[in-house]
């Protein structure tokens, strides 16, 4: 760049201070939350597949959920976990919950507490068992293939799991009729490899938007039964269960941020092209 020359508008735009972009993002998130627009939500087949499977299983079927995320992914995954769990409770299925990420334990506990307020008759040790966290990641999945009560001798609340009524019917991964795992990383791969492939239990993934593309090949290979991807997926599930909640209300914000980034990329490219043209013009003038 010519040092004596004052930078043109195009140049100044392209070297915009990051903080301006950050401010715009903050506004794009906050304004739609304060003034909702109610944009339409279309349900995708991969989310419907999860809903349909839970809906069509006979009441009392065994469902395993794994909470493999931590508070960082809470805004994205918590709404979908709650929505799916609510659906499972509403249908009267038996539910076992494991946690592979240590900081996910309290999130799962919180979700259970909130649902207990909605469904007071939902009984611990009979309708559900919250197995809590066990160290080991993939090894835990291999181990629950043998037995829940051996891998998790005590549940989250400190009760011995061995004698629980639910454990009598549902004591290992292979006895599950369906699995839904909530993933912020690649532990979903382990559930597919060591869970569904070994024990032949269909599995669905509730995943953050950033890791969702990683799971699409599994969907086509029918190793995954469905994907609930990010906040959008959660909003779709809320629409299907007809209980609009957090995810639905955040959809407008997400749309706005996507639109903002869209505009930023398009403008940055147009201005970059203009800069090239400008440089060429200056070079010609200089000659």
């Amino acid at each position: 760049m010519d040092k004596e020359r004052k930078p043109s508008f195009v140049e100044r735009f392209l070297q915009m201070d990051r903080r301006i972009i950050y401010t715009l993002v903050a506004l794009a998130v906050a304004i739609p939350l304060l003034f909702p627009m109610g944009l339409p939500i279309k349900v995708t087949p991969e989310v419907r597949s999860v809903y349909d499977t839970i809906e069509n299983l006979p009441a009392g079927s065994n469902i395993l959920m794994s909470v493999d995320f931590d508070p960082a992914s809470q805004p994205e995954l918590y709404p979908m976990m709650k929505s799916v769990m609510r659906h499972v409770v509403r249908k009267g299925h038996k539910l076992a919950i494991t946690v592979l990420w240590p900081n996910g334990v309290n999130l799962a506990a919180q979700c259970i507490e909130e649902l207990k307020l909605e469904f007071p008759e939902w009984t611990n040790t009979v309708d559900y068992v919250f197995l809590g966290y066990q160290v080991g990641g993939a090894i835990v999945i291999m181990s629950v293939g043998n037995s829940f009560s051996e891998t998790f001798p005590k549940d989250y609340y400190g009760q011995s799991t061995a004698g629980m009524p639910i454990i009598k019917e549902f004591n290992k991964l292979g006895e599950a009729d369906y699995m839904v795992m909530f993933e912020a990383g690649n532990s979903g791969d382990w559930w597919i490899v060591y869970g569904t492939e070994v024990h032949d239990v269909p599995v669905a993934g509730g995943v953050t938007a950033v890791v969702a593309p990683q799971y699409y090949p599994y969907l086509q290979a029918k190793q995954l039964n469905g994907i609930i991807g990010g906040l959008k997926g959660a909003a779709e599930y809320e629409k299907l269960t007809e209980v609009p909640a957090l995810a639905t209300s955040a959809m407008d914000s997400q749309s706005m941020v996507h639109a903002l980034i869209f505009v930023a990329i398009v403008l940055a490219n147009i201005f970059a092209l203009m800069l090239v043209a400008e440089k060429r013009r200056r070079a010609q003038e200089g000659r």
Partner: peptide, 14 residues
């Protein structure tokens, strides 16, 4: 990238 970004949120449907 742009199509996926905008097509997978409600505003794309809109």
């Amino acid at each position: 990238g742009l199509i996926v970004m905008i097509g997978r949120v409600p505003i794309g449907e809109y």
